[in-house]
Structures are given as C-alpha cells and as structure tokens.
C-alpha cells in the first residue's frame, strides 16, 4: 500500500521533468484551475473544520456512555444511530476525523523527516554510507509492509502512539529511495558539476541546487502518504493493533460496529465512507499537485 506513493513517480524521469523555479507560478496556476484540486480542498477544509470544532458541532460526548439509549436506529437525534454503549455514532465519527487526520499528517511528516535526510545522504555521499543505507532499505523492502508493521506494533504494544512509531519505522524507506534517486541523477547533471567546478560549497550545492528539486517531489509524496497512512492506520486499528477503546478512531469503530452489522448497518457503513471521503479528498489534492509539478502529464 505504501508502495503506491513511491511508484506513482517513476524515479528516473523525475530529475528530467522537474526544472526548478521556472514553473512555480505555472504550477500554482495549474493547481488553482484544477477542478479536482478545488473539490478536494473544499472537502478537506470541511473535514478540518469538523475535526477542530467537533465539540461545538454536536451536543453529545464521544466517550460518555448512556445505557438507556443503546443501539438506537438512525434518527434526527442520532444521525447514524447509537452504539452498544449508547454513544452517538455521528459524534464519534466527528471526533474520529480529528484522530485520523492527525495520524495521517503525523506519520507522513515524521516519516519524511527521517527518510529524506537518509536518502539525501545516501545519494550525495555514495560509497559505504550509500551501501549500508540501501542494504537496510532492500531488507525492509523484501517484507510485506503490513506484516512488518504488525510485528512492530506487537513489539512496542498496541496504542495510537506506538502505531505511529511503527508506521514511521517501516515506511521511511520510500522517501529514502525516492530522494536518493533524485539526488543521484542530479549529482551528475551539468549545472551541478559546473557549480562544483566553480568552487561552490557543499552546503550551497545542497541548499541551492538539490533541495529545490527535491522539495516538490517530496511534497507530492507526503500528500499521498497522508492518504495512505489514514488507510493503514484504520486497518491496524481494525485488527486491534492501533487505537484502543474507547478512542473514537474510524478503524476501531469499524471493528466494533461489525458485531452490530445486521441491526445497525449504518455504524459499519459510515466510518468506511468517512475514511473513503477523507482519503479521496487528499488523493485529489495529491493528484493535482503531481500534475502541477509534472507538466508532461498535464493535458
């Protein structure tokens, strides 16, 4: 699943296709006229709004039980019904937005901050450092991602924080591979060779020439990774390895609602739809970002 992220951008083509600065404004124009990007941004804004103001949007509490009001069918008071402890399903869904978005962003940013420097170091320094890093990457790549993530969570114990840690530990390799390949191909390009010949410092080469090329690609990668992380976090929570009760997390809610699937199918359907809408919105934005940064794919 996380592999999507890396594969969406064919590595070898990246360096050729991205010319810094020249099209920053073009990219922005492309984004602001992209219907999908606009739709995705609107939906995402609504979700962020719901996440921040969850407490104001509903009269109920996500964790307070009400045993005289359990398993209520959907109604005006309870849009998707109440669960087996009498908690309002819609309220928990709103609070779940908070958790899912936080996890997605947290995992992507933490992973990026480990994966990108490692990839840059491997690509720029080469030699033994590169070899060691890439051997580790190869080993991790040979595992099915989820198996490794599950084993990691089993080591550190199931909880939200630990799940984030485990996901970061197993997905940094995608950034590393991506950034390394960009840096590798850039290192040989004429303008960097020329800059080196002119006596530019290492720092100046990294910050003035390499970084501007890496950033747009990483931005696209992060946007897809946020979507990806939300999906995987839901799957792990569904297996009982992520969010712990009573946390209102969508995956955990799904696993809980499975027992009530026949009498209250909405409790199973709604969190799944919520995940889908969130991930779809982010993917819309990611797609548009990629189109904006990769002119060859644009119509």
């Amino acid at each position: 699943m996380a592999e999507h992220v890396a594969e969406l951008i064919p590595e070898a083509e990246i360096a050729e296709k991205i010319k810094p600065k020249s099209f920053t404004s073009m990219a922005w124009r492309s984004l602001s006229t992209n219907k999908q990007a606009i739709l995705g941004s609107i939906v995402l804004s609504i979700l962020v709004f719901a996440a921040i103001f969850a407490g104001q949007l509903t009269p109920y509490e996500p964790y307070t039980t009400n045993y005289s009001n359990v398993k209520q069918l959907p109604s005006a008071q309870h849009l998707i019904g109440t669960d087996e402890l009498g908690r309002d399903g819609f309220t928990r869904l709103l609070y779940g937005t908070r958790i899912s978005l936080t996890i997605g962003v947290l995992v992507a940013l933490c992973t990026m901050s480990i994966g990108v420097p490692l990839g840059a170091i491997a690509g720029y320094l080469g030699g033994v450092v590169d070899m060691v890093i890439m051997r580790v990457v190869d080993v991790l790549m040979a595992f099915p991602f989820l198996v490794l993530a599950i084993a990691m969570v089993a080591v550190v114990g199931p909880s939200l924080v630990n799940m984030v840690f485990a996901l970061v530990m197993v997905s940094w390799i995608w950034y590393t591979r991506l950034v390394r390949s960009i840096v590798l191909s850039l290192r040989e390009t004429e303008y960097i060779v020329a800059a080196q010949a002119l006596g530019a410092s290492q720092a100046s080469i990294i910050f003035r020439h390499i970084l501007p090329n890496v950033i747009p690609v990483v931005v696209v990668q992060v946007s897809f990774h946020v979507a990806e992380a939300i999906l995987i976090a839901a799957a792990l929570s569904y297996l009982g390895l992520g969010a712990q009760p009573p946390t209102a997390e969508w995956g955990a809610m799904l696993s809980n609602a499975k027992e009530l699937m026949r009498i209250l199918p909405m409790l199973s359907i709604a969190p799944g739809v919520a995940i889908m809408i969130t991930v779809l919105a982010i993917n819309f934005i990611g797609d548009a970002l990629r189109d904006a940064l990769d002119p060859t794919l644009r119509n």
Binding site: Y63, T65, E84, L85, G240, P245, P246, A252
Partner: peptide, 12 residues
C-alpha cells in the same frame, strides 16, 4: 468482542 466494549464502559 465484547472485551473492548467493557473496557470503554469502565474507562467512562
């Protein structure tokens, strides 16, 4: 199930 539900109830 229903272990996690009991837990949620006790936490509350």
């Amino acid at each position: 199930d229903p272990g996690p539900d009991y837990v949620a109830a006790v936490v509350d």
